[in-house]
Amino acid sequence: MMKGLKKWRLFSLLAALTVFLTGCGEEYLSTLRPAGETGQEQFNLLVLSTSIMVLVIVVVVVIYILALLKFRRSKLGENHIPKQVEGNHTLEMIWTVIPIILLLILAVPTVYYTYKQGDVAGAEMKDEEGNAQNLVVNVTAKLYWWEFEYPDLGIVTSQELVVPTDEKVYFNLKAGDVKHSFWIPAVGGKMDTNVDNLNKFYLTFDKESEGLKDGVFYGKCAELCGPSHALMDFKVKSMNRGDFDNWVAAMQKTAEPATPASATAQAGQDVFNASCIGCHAVSGAGPANAVGPNLATFGDRNRIGGFLEHDEENLKNWIKNPQKYKPGNVMPAFESKLSNEELDALAEYLMGLSVEQ
């Protein structure tokens, strides 16, 4: 009776695990559903190495089971001694050569793709007029947000990386405070961002993100960096080259401040200029390395603080006490500094900062 209960407990546990595992493999987040050339190459290496390991395990287990069955005592007796094969040159050659072959099968493509994906010379290529031939993005990781600068386009954004599809995008990675790690699981492997040196790599985006959940790929920090490490993520919008060029043009136009759409938003702009402008910019055409995230596209984002639902109520709660939601970040609390009317006006103003039509 107890044995039957234990079996049912195991079955129930496995059934419960399947419920949790159904959340794996989402296209916007999973390394197992690659959405770019780099991610696909890394996935192919993963499949190859796993296949080799499974093959070795299966062969060893089969030999082990056959030995158990063939040489069991009940069949051959207590005193039977199997033929000794120690020093057999043929067998020694087999179990020496086969592992070498398997290692070569794994090593050759691994070395090839390591050097291929490490080739970032394209980031420096110029055309006859001296213009960059490929898109380069300077990524700066900070506690606990991300800044993306497009040096050849003269624009800066934060928290949402925007890229064209079907072409290599080169990244220069650095950290502004402590060590972080830049990772877009569905598109390619991670790369550390350090304070003292610059890391470089490239990714390709084969799929437009518009059809995905929330319309974005999810990016994450993959290096433990502090109490809010788990909340340090960013979003990636990938689009065709035409739409990307339109987005760039719209970002460049933010150099000229837009007139708020309502009197409340105008009041919110005044609050922003009095309380927030020292750390945040609202122009996507400004310089990089600001104290706080660039807010030029704040109204186009789908999250507040990287993880809260994008609505005015969450925005006001965040402004009042950001430490409550993301401990360790450097933004001060404004709960005692702004009235409810000022918070309402500021929230309406920020939600209206948009470059997407």
Rank of each mutant, 00 (worst) to 15 (best):
P287W: 03
N321L: 06
K324M: 03
H280N: 03
F20A: 08
A186L: 01
I304K: 03
V236A: 00
F71S: 13
A288W: 03
G219L: 04
G211S: 04
G118R: 12
H80P: 02
G328C: 04
G189M: 09
S181M: 07
H180P: 05
W318R: 06
T38L: 04
P260K: 07
V195I: 10
M2Q: 12
S275Y: 14
E160Y: 03
F205W: 03
P293S: 07
L76Y: 01
A35G: 06
N246D: 11
I277E: 01
L308H: 06
R33C: 01
M331T: 06
G305K: 06
L315G: 02
I101G: 07
A141Q: 01
Q117M: 13
K326S: 07
E335D: 10
L338W: 03
T165P: 11
I81F: 03
K200L: 00
L48Y: 10
A285E: 00
D214Q: 09
E129P: 10
K3H: 10
Q323W: 04
L21F: 02
K3I: 12
N317K: 13
K3T: 13
N302E: 05
D127E: 14
Y144H: 10
D300G: 11
R73S: 05
V291H: 05
M191H: 08
L315C: 08
A345K: 09
A15H: 06
V236T: 09
Y115M: 13
G189T: 09
N246P: 02
H180Y: 11
L338T: 10
Q133K: 15
V120N: 02
E78I: 05
G305F: 01
D127A: 15
G306R: 00
D311Q: 11
L10P: 00
N321S: 08
F244Q: 06
Q40T: 12
S336Q: 09
N138D: 14
A274I: 13
N329I: 04
S262C: 08
L46N: 13
E147A: 04
I277L: 04
T165H: 08
